[in-house]
Each structure stands twice: as structure tokens, then as C-alpha cells.
């Protein structure tokens, strides 16, 4: 049952596509940011999944344990999460400013206003 064993990767692919779809398909600027978040979260899950070693435990030295999971991808993802939070914060800040300037956060309405001027 190889397909079931790759359970995590199916989740990754699903989240990635769902997030990507939201970014492309939605006109609402906040929803786009949420989609972007889901998209990034899928990558986090991917890194964490391949850091897992079968039968391995948390990488803390203990008696009678010889196999440890790889902690490096986890650390990398901590950094990536920080980057993701910064991106989200900046994106939402921009949305606030756009709302102040245009009075809307729907992309098509913003385009209409820009075309008029």
C-alpha cells in the first residue's frame, strides 16, 4: 500500500493546489493572502515529513535509542514560518492601506476605479 504510506504527501499536494487555486481564483485580497498562507503551509508540511526517519524518535540523546529523526528540516521551517508571518503581516497591512485608498478590497472593483481615472 505505497499510496497510503505517502499519506502526508497527499495532504501536501492537496493543500498546495487548494492554496494556489484560492490565490488565482479569488478576487478578495484578504482571501488571496489566506490562500498564500495555505500554499506556504503545504511546503512546511512537506519539509517536516521528509525530516521524519522511520522508527526514529525526537532528536534528544537518551539511553537505548539509536535512531533519531532529522531535526534540520524542522529548524529550516521555523525560519520559513517567520518569513511567512512577515509576508502575511505585510500583505494584510497593504490590504488595509488599499481599503483606505479605494474603499474596497475586491480586485475587480479596484480595477474599475483605476480604469476610470
Amino acid at each position: 500500500m505505497a499510496a497510503v504510506g505517502l499519506y502526508n504527501y497527499w495532504i501536501v499536494v492537496f493543500l498546495m493546489m487548494a492554496g494556489f487555486y484560492i490565490v488565482i481564483a479569488h478576487d478578495n485580497l484578504v482571501k488571496k493572502i489566506v490562500g498564500l498562507n495555505i500554499f506556504q503551509a503545504s511546503v512546511f508540511v512537506m519539509y517536516i515529513t521528509f525530516g521524519k526517519v522511520q522508527g526514529g524518535t525526537a532528536p534528544i540523546i537518551a539511553d537505548g535509542v539509536t535512531t533519531y529523526s532529522n531535526p534540520l528540516p524542522h529548524v529550516l521551517i521555523l525560519t520559513a514560518i517567520v518569513v511567512g508571518v512577515a509576508t502575511t503581516a505585510l500583505g494584510l497591512a497593504l490590504v488595509v492601506r488599499i481599503n483606505e485608498a479605494y474603499g474596497t478590497i475586491e480586485e475587480d472593483e479596484i480595477h474599475d476605479q483605476d480604469d476610470d481615472t
Partner: peptide, 17 residues
Amino acid sequence: DRRALTASYQYLVLGTI
């Protein structure tokens, strides 16, 4: 220009992808 905001937002989305 207020369009700087939407330009920056568009860049943010594409750049992050």
C-alpha cells in the same frame, strides 16, 4: 500614487509564490 499599493500587493503575491 494609490496604484503603488496595488502594484506592491500584486508583486507580494507573485513574489511569494
